[in-house]
Design a protein around this nucleic acid. Structure first.
Length: 779
DNA sequence: GAGCACTGC
């Protein structure tokens, strides 16, 4: 346990100067002690200068003497309190108000009085009761005691502090927005944009590339022969950028400038500048394989390497060859520009400066075993020792965030009013929107906000005013095992690119600091340069189906920027063949073409297509919509008991039931939207909308038609084993509502005779073959 | 008593 005095707000130069002075003082005191001249009170009587320093803080001589004295006393009583057998025998009622809340200032002065009073009976340990209370409150690990002195506040911190080493400063870019527009108009940018068919554009978010370049191309006349498409990885981005550009151009959104996202097409015949999600352009490819209505395609945020952008790359590269009039712009953040350039036949790279402030990077001196604990300690360390400014902590998931929130509340709960208030804001995608809004509320004067976020804060949303980033270096990442055909989420170290992105989050509105909870050595030697692109770690069934329906047959030789593992491609082909979407030659069947129309996992699409036969399409699309919305409909924030305790402790947290209700509303609306879309698509593939809700067997058979590859048999042991590969699987815990559909073994042979033979399903001991409809885990 | 990062069509 270490004992620190930590100074108040200071600039870096001041800090260094103080540090120097402090070292000088310490050296002086050491020499004096060694000489045997040390006196009570640490008076610096032999120093001429008026500056008195106490642990780095400048004081008047009187303050200095007082503090030195107080510290010594404090250490003494602390020591004695540790020695005391029964801490409860000492009481200090004066220090508590009517509600029983301790007044730290008062507590200290009472302690001082008692200690100095030669007649006091409780001289021994005035702090014992307080300490017992604190230990009870915050679990012995960390506590802060505030001492008020005449003109300033000093803080005592007891903690095994984490030592950081300042490693480097990520340069900012002092860049003038107007200047850029000017230079874009006049400099080589203009000629480059006009002369070249394919161009890689590099620029940080905020450089204006997304808004300025399409406008420039429009002015240069590129919209005469077709639209300009600009793709974004996220819906909100497409919407907000379109809104801004339409404003800048002085036109109504949806007229000349529009956006197109799922469930919402805000474009018209007038539209010449179209912002859209990458997945949406991919869908448009299916109907228009040469993109003839576009004259320019700009793939924005290409460095994010979403599944859709990666597929788009291969497709646009291909059509650019036979359409010399199609201009192709690939825009990305700095890191992997060379790679994009290489892929697009050495396309020139054009750089646009970004706008970012410098960010100081700190690494830990030694590796931290428990990153969650380290993150909490570091937040408090920043809270107590650094100038005010909001903190962003990257954690891996909801559960971790909830744990961290509890611990932080616990540890700051017992602190008096002398310390700045710490506002804790959790944020993750499953958090109801109403609660998400909390992170955008401006931090009140004198308070400090700590945002506990998942990866959502890395790209999807930006929070202004973040000054400190704490990066434990992990995230949850999806990985796919082609052998078992199962996807799983694993906590994985992040890449260097991701670490830079996280650090950059602190430098958006002013200079920032990033505290990495790993060593510089770890960073340089253990982290990958870039995150493995999604296409290499996902189930490719829907990708393969989409490419096949675009007429691309030789998938193993398709020009992927980073080819997925051949095994994953083969697994996808195998599945599509089993679903009869492909024939033995690997060509799309009629069923396959119908399936490709649905923006769903092929097993779900197959289920819908099969519903025609069993006359229950109306019921099946409801099921499909609910399944594709994901699990969040049945989501529960946390174990009720814990939450109830929490609510009692924090007495203002709202009711859990309400949160779930809010969440359900959002998910249900989404399911409704998807269902409506599916109904429209049914018409398109000429399947009649029929309901057959009374015939459960028909519905079960329809489900079996899509999900037979995932059928499993109940073992005597209570676990399940897949029929096809004898893989042990478990029903996912979220399937509390028996989300397993029972089916008859003979159906498998009836519905998928090419996949199952009678011998596969024969099992004298069991009549039922429940099937895991939810997610299954590998054993 | 289990437990689901983030997008997107």
């Amino acid at each position: 346990m270490m004992f620190y005095f930590i100074s108040s707000v200071k600039s870096e130069e001041e800090r260094l100067k103080d540090q120097r002075e402090k070292e000088e003082l310490e050296q002086h005191l050491r020499e004096r002690d060694a000489a045997g001249t040390r006196k009570h009170g640490y008076c610096r009587d032999d120093i001429e200068d008026e500056q008195y320093l106490f642990e780095g803080v400048k004081l008047s001589e009187a303050e200095y003497r007082e503090l030195r004295y107080k510290k010594e006393i404090y250490e003494l009583v602390k020591k004695r309190s540790e020695e005391a057998d029964n801490v409860n025998e000492y009481r200090m009622p004066e220090a508590y108000d009517q509600e029983g809340v301790v007044n730290q200032e008062k507590r200290f002065s009472v302690a001082m009085q008692r200690y100095r009073d030669p007649n006091a009976e409780e001289k021994m340990n005035p702090f014992a009761e307080q300490e017992a209370w604190e230990e009870h409150q915050i679990g012995k690990h960390f506590y802060v005691v505030i001492l008020a002195c005449s003109q300033f506040v000093l803080r005592f911190v007891f903690e095994d502090q984490i030592d950081f080493i300042k490693a480097s400063v990520m340069d900012g870019d002092k860049f003038d927005y107007e200047e850029m527009e000017d230079s874009l108009e006049k400099s080589r940018a203009k000629s480059a944009l006009e002369a070249l068919q394919v161009l890689v554009i590099v620029g940080e978010t905020g450089s204006g590339k997304t808004t300025q370049i399409p406008q420039y191309l429009h002015d240069a006349g590129y919209t005469k022969n077709g639209m300009i498409a600009c793709t974004q990885p996220r819906r909100v981005a497409a919407m907000s950028v379109a809104a801004r550009v339409s404003q800048e151009m002085g036109v109504k959104l949806g007229h000349e400038v529009g956006y197109s996202i799922r469930f919402e097409d805000c474009t018209s015949e007038k539209t010449i500048l179209k912002y859209m999600t990458d997945g949406m352009l991919l869908r448009e490819f299916l109907g228009e394989p040469d993109l003839s209505s576009y004259s320019v395609v700009m793939v924005d945020e290409a460095h994010e390497r979403t599944l859709s952008t990666d597929i788009l790359f291969g497709l646009v590269k291909d059509i650019a060859r036979f359409r010399p009039d199609l201009k192709l712009l690939i825009s990305s953040a700095t890191l992997d520009a060379e790679k994009f350039s290489d892929y697009f036949d050495s396309a020139p790279i054009f750089k646009i400066p970004g706008r970012r402030y410098p960010v100081e990077i700190n690494f830990t001196k030694a590796p931290e075993a428990d990153y969650l604990d380290a993150a909490i300690v570091t937040s408090l360390q920043i809270h107590v020792t650094q100038p005010l400014g909001d903190i962003l902590v990257f954690l891996t998931g909801q559960e971790e965030i909830e744990t961290a929130e509890e611990i932080l509340k616990h540890r700051t709960g017992g602190l008096g009013t002398k310390i700045a208030e710490l506002i804790i804001c959790p944020i993750y995608a499953n958090l109801p929107t109403e609660l998400q809004a909390k992170i955008f509320e401006p931090t009140p004067e004198g308070a400090q906000k700590v945002v506990l976020a998942t990866n959502i804060a890395e790209t999807s949303l930006t929070i202004d005013g973040i000054k400190y980033v704490i990066d434990p270096g992990f995230c949850k990442m999806k990985s796919y095992n082609p052998r078992t055909g199962m996807e799983s989420l694993l906590v994985t170290p992040i890449s260097k690119a991701s670490a830079m992105q996280r650090a950059g989050r602190s430098g958006r509105t002013g200079p920032g600091k990033c505290f990495r909870l790993y060593t510089a050595y770890n960073f340089h030697n253990d982290l990958d340069e870039n995150t493995v692109p999604e296409i290499q770690r996902t189930n490719l069934a829907s990708v393969v189906l989409a490419l096949k329906s675009l007429g691309i047959h030789d998938l193993l030789h398709f020009d992927f920027m980073d080819p997925p593992p051949a095994e994953a491609l083969l697994k996808a082909l195998e599945l599509l063949f089993a679903l009869s979407a492909l024939n033995k030659l690997g060509e799309l069947t009629k069923v396959g073409r119908q399936m490709a129309e649905f923006p769903l996992d092929p097993m779900l699409s197959k289920m819908i297509v099969a519903s025609e036969k069993y006359k229950c399409s109306d019921d099946i699309i409801s099921i499909a919509a609910m399944l594709s919305v994901g699990n969040s409909i049945f989501y529960r924030p946390k174990d009720k008991q814990v939450h109830a305790d929490n609510a009692r402790m924090n007495f203002h947290t709202g009711s859990v039931g309400d949160h779930i209700a809010l969440l359900k509303v959002r998910s249900m609306k989404r399911a409704r939207d998807i269902r409506d879309q599916l109904a429209g698509l049914l018409e398109r593939v000429e399947i009649e909308l029929t309901s057959n809700a009374n015939d459960l067997d028909a519905i079960r058979k329809t489900i079996t038609s899509g999900f037979f590859p995932h059928s499993a048999r109940l073992q005597k042991s209570g676990s399940y084993r897949t029929v096809k590969h004898s893989q042990i699987v478990h029903i996912h815990p979220s399937s509390g509502l028996a989300q397993v559909t029972e089916l008859k073994p003979e159906w498998l042979v009836e519905i998928a005779p090419h996949y199952y033979q009678l011998k596969d399903v024969e099992d004298s001991s069991s009549k039922k073959l429940p099937r895991g409809a939810g997610r299954a885990q590998e054993d």
